[in-house]
Design a protein around this nucleic acid. Structure first.
Length: 582
DNA sequence: GCCGTTTTCGGCCCGACTGTTTTCAGTCG
């Protein structure tokens, strides 16, 4: 059985794109690249789209790519791909991702030197054979070797939370320079993608101040090595995690178009510029121009850039070419949820199980550092032995403890909850009687990840006391990929009035953005949770908000934006639905 | 191979940089 068929086919399409590039058929390459992207962005198994006849409706998938997808599902392979593979040495497909290794370069090395493996190629680069080819030289060869090193390094991407912290430290230092007029993170960091390659910082200042600003940047104590320094750009490697940080300096009147361009994504920019072209405009990092007269129409702010092409300003988190351009044209972009909308947190652990802080410490910390109306304490239940999960008796005792702490705090900030375990058969490891005494119940899977868990999750959602499914896909970066959530899960969530969690732990970020979008589209409610195990963890909630925004979530989609009274209604409504007395 | 934004055929983002060239191809973001 296929573990993740969307990704498998996307991988093949990416390979095919590479092969077509190699064969100098760049537009066909583009088409396969796009189709691969679309497949990876699908929140659901591609077979379900086919069953509903909706696959070819998606922009980027046409009759021929659809046929090939169906062929793969039926036969486990794509004939055309098998044929194409014979035309390119297998190592070269990977090599095309290496900086400095374009299709033209590789093709000539293959044809003129008869080289077909990565190993041979490295040897030929080093012994001077490549440098002797016409149009090649020592510098190019040097850059290719450097590219190989960079490629190995860039395979390890930073998690968003780490990257944000590193970048913000530098931004704060830069902000102390009064010459800087604007400063923003750019690239995938500004879009809040799950993982980040390079850190891009954008600033604007007067021309005369450029040198001073760039010098200040490359002389920061965080900098380990300066890679490049020019008039408009500097690249450094910083001490922390040996990461590359690029600083780009813009002119103040090009701030908007520059920021727009450097924020990306590439796909978003291509689509945007393509559209602009169709209405007689031209967009570049220097501004929006009339294509005929060359007259500059906009560019000082990002708003002006989008406005010039008749669109709403698009929040960076949406700029992935997943329909935001069409929506912005129709003035129908959602108003995304914001951190300031969040009134409470629904998932955290105390010293009663595997948390580092007592309930009192947690309560006092939240009172001092957050403007929350409520925080639900949700320790583990007994099945999670490694965390000393709570028994029925423990739960009753903890309820008393929370009442005591609330008295000390002065108001009922802390609510009584549990992270109850979903067992292999989908039943829960605490009785309904105990669950009924709690304000809020998170149900999570902590065992048997390597199976389709649809049945377990659905059974848990059909329990009247379960309010949200914790970390729904079970993924952990670098450890487990997580299971797919079938359509059925979203349907039953909607029907039963059960929410899905956006777990904000940096290693989880679970739900992933594309599934958040699916939940939003299907009317399933979301809960953003820090899943804190220590006081500093509570700040992860910001990360969850970013993910929610990348999934197009509005305030109304997120339970944390409700007052506690409204949360209680959400809980009661579900119990009523199942005919339970409340 | 895809798509329809006064197109169902004829396009497919834009500009900078680099290294190799005597005017530009290849690559990148």
């Amino acid at each position: 059985m296929y573990l993740n068929i969307n990704k498998e086919i996307a991988k093949i399409f990416r390979d095919m794109a590479h092969i077509y590039e190699f064969l100098d058929d760049k537009f066909r390459a583009l088409a396969y690249q796009k189709a691969a992207q679309v497949l990876e962005d699908l929140p659901d198994d591609v077979r379900n789209y086919i069953a509903l006849g909706k696959l070819s409706e998606i922009r980027g998938i046409g009759t021929h790519t659809q046929e090939k997808i169906i062929e793969y599902i039926k036969t486990g392979k794509i004939q055309k791909y098998e044929e194409l593979k014979k035309l390119v040495p297998p190592d070269f497909l990977e090599l095309m991702d290496v900086p400095g290794f374009g299709p033209k370069t590789l093709k000539r090395i293959y044809q003129e030197l008869g080289i077909s493996t990565k190993e041979e190629l490295i040897k030929a680069l080093k012994d001077g054979r490549v440098a002797k080819l016409k149009g090649f030289g020592p510098k190019k060869v040097e850059n290719m070797l450097k590219g190989l090193e960079l490629y190995e390094k860039s395979k390890e991407r930073l998690l968003l939370w780490e990257a944000l912290n590193i970048a913000n430290t530098i931004v704060e230092k830069l902000k102390t320079l009064k010459e800087i007029k604007n400063i923003e993170l750019a690239g995938s960091l500004r879009r809040k993608k799950e993982t980040i390659g390079d850190i891009d910082i954008l600033i604007s200042c007067d021309d005369k101040d450029r040198e001073k600003v760039i010098d200040f940047f490359i002389n920061l104590e965080d900098v380990k090595e300066v890679l490049a320094k020019g008039d408009t750009k500097a690249s450094v490697i910083i001490k922390e995690k040996d990461r590359q940080v690029d600083l780009r300096v813009l002119k103040p009147d090009e701030w908007g178009s520059g920021l727009q361009y450097f924020t990306g994504s590439k796909e978003h920019n291509v689509h945007l510029r393509d559209y602009a072209k169709s209405i007689g405009l031209k967009i570049s990092e220097y501004g929006v121009f009339d294509a005929k007269t060359g007259e500059k129409i906009a560019g000082d702010t990002e708003e002006s850039v989008y406005k010039a092409v008749g669109m709403q300003w698009i929040p960076p988190e949406l700029r992935e070419d997943r329909g935001e351009i069409e929506a912005a044209l129709k003035n129908s972009l959602p108003k995304l949820v914001e951190l300031s909308d969040i009134k409470g947190d629904f998932h955290c652990h105390s010293t009663w199980t595997d948390g580092f802080n007592t309930i009192l410490e947690i309560g006092q910390y939240i009172k001092e550092n957050f403007k929350y109306e409520y925080l639900v304490i949700t320790d583990h239940s007994k099945a999670v032995r490694v965390a000393h999960g709570l028994t029925e008796d423990d739960v009753l005792k903890q309820i008393e403890e929370i009442d005591k702490v609330n008295k000390i705090i002065g108001y009922p900030l802390l609510k009584k909850g549990i992270e109850v375990d979903i067992l292999l058969d989908g039943s829960l490891d605490l009785s309904d009687e105990i669950l009924s005494k709690l304000d809020w119940v998170v149900a999570s899977i902590h065992t048997n990840f390597n199976r389709d868990n649809t049945d377990r999750i659905i059974k848990a959602m059909e329990n009247p006391y379960v309010n949200v499914i914790g970390h729904p896909t079970g993924r952990i970066f670098g450890t487990r990929e997580g299971y797919q959530l079938s359509d059925e899960v979203f349907k039953v969530a909607k029907e039963t009035g059960t929410a899905l969690e956006i777990n904000s732990q940096p290693l989880r970020m679970d739900l992933p953005d594309i599934m958040v979008k699916k939940a939003v589209d299907m009317g399933v409610k979301l809960v953003i949770s820090s899943d804190s195990h220590s006081l500093s963890n509570f700040h992860y909630i910001q990360l969850g908000v970013y993910i929610a925004r990348r999934g197009w979530a509005k305030k109304e989609d997120v339970i944390n934006t409700l007052s506690w009274k409204e949360v209680e209604k959400f809980v009661k409504d579900k119990r009523k639905r199942f005919g339970v007395k409340t």
